[in-house]
Amino acid sequence: MTEQLLLRRTVIGGETAEGDYVVIWDEIRIGRIHQQTGLPPGRPSVAWGVSFPGRPQPPAHRGLAKDHEEAKQRVKLAWSAIRPTLTDDEIREARESQERDERRPRKRPRHWQD
């Protein structure tokens, strides 16, 4: 088991966006960092959030940052509060749930069909 956090490009509907990442811990998706659009200039515009599958996400584990570096630091801080509280059973259940989800066939709604 690793304690390292990794960022992977977010893929939604086969597409990626600049500055949009999924946060991965030990091959489990635990968060996301992405650029928000439409906010006034000068306001924090990088959204970040951390949660562990099967657990509620407290408000302190999500927010806006001025840039991706600040968002990464906030993710690390939030994760440092979550990680020590996880049980082996919770980690196993999260891994199994994610594996089931990845095996599930993806079907686009009929109104999305080309």
Rank of each mutant, 00 (worst) to 15 (best):
R106A: 15
D101Y: 09
P109C: 12
S97D: 10
E96L: 05
Q98C: 01
A78G: 14
R100G: 04
V75R: 02
R110L: 15
R100A: 04
R95K: 07
R92V: 08
T87E: 08
K107Q: 14
E96A: 12
R95M: 05
R92W: 00
P109D: 08
R104M: 14
T85P: 10
Q98V: 00
D101Q: 10
E99L: 04
I82Q: 07
R95T: 08
T87H: 04
R103M: 03
R92N: 07
S80Y: 09
S97V: 03
T87Y: 06
R103W: 01
I82E: 08
I82G: 11
E99D: 01
S97N: 14
W112T: 13
R103S: 02
W79L: 07
D88R: 01
A94F: 00
P105E: 05
E90M: 00
E93Q: 02
A81W: 15
R110C: 11
I91A: 05
H111G: 10
R92C: 05
T87D: 09
R103C: 05
E93C: 01
D88L: 11
K107T: 13
L77A: 14
W112F: 11
L77R: 11
V75N: 08
S97G: 14
A81K: 14
R108P: 10
P109G: 14
A81R: 13
W79K: 09
R83F: 13
R110M: 13
W112V: 13
R110E: 09
A78Q: 12
W79I: 07
E99C: 02
R92S: 11
R106Q: 15
D101S: 10
I82Y: 02
L86W: 05
R100L: 04
T85M: 05
R74H: 11
P105C: 08
D89I: 02
L77Y: 10
P109T: 07
E90F: 02
K76G: 15
E102R: 06
H111A: 11
H111N: 10
R108F: 15
R92G: 06
R104Y: 07
I91N: 05
E96T: 05
Q98W: 00
W79F: 14
P84T: 10
D89E: 12
T85A: 08
W112L: 14
W112S: 13
R110Q: 09
D89H: 06
E93L: 03
K76S: 13
R95E: 04
E99W: 00
D101K: 10
R95W: 09
R104V: 13
P109R: 09
R100S: 04
L86I: 08
W112K: 14
E99P: 01
D88K: 02
